[in-house]
Amino acid sequence: MRIQVLAIVSSLLFLFYIGALIIKGKLREEYAIMWIVCTLVLVLFSFWRDGLAIVSKLFGVFSPPNMVFIGAIFAILIYLLHLSVVVSKLQEHTKTLAQEIALLKQKEEKKNA
């Protein structure tokens, strides 16, 4: 019982924190969606205690905690990959911007000279 209260409180707090980040403009909505969905899943299972066992049985996983680990690790991997894609895109953008700035500056200085 005590663990259930703890789970509910912490996942709700997490949800509020994400909300606060979005409101302050520190987290873009498209990234927030993923976090909100994950947290809602956490909230759902902390209220619905038998749920975990039922879902585990559905997937044929022997022990429910394993189900949690598999799900969490999988979600983290996907999200990390997504972040790598985002970083690669940003790097490409930075490169193009830096080159444009350098070329423009050179043109400007030639004009002034």
Partner: peptide, 16 residues
């Protein structure tokens, strides 16, 4: 003379 504001590595510099 072209001055890159950040370090891009050899490929990025040559491409500039």
């Amino acid at each position: 003379a072209i001055n890159l504001p950040v370090n891009l590595g050899i490929g990025g510099a040559v491409q500039t």
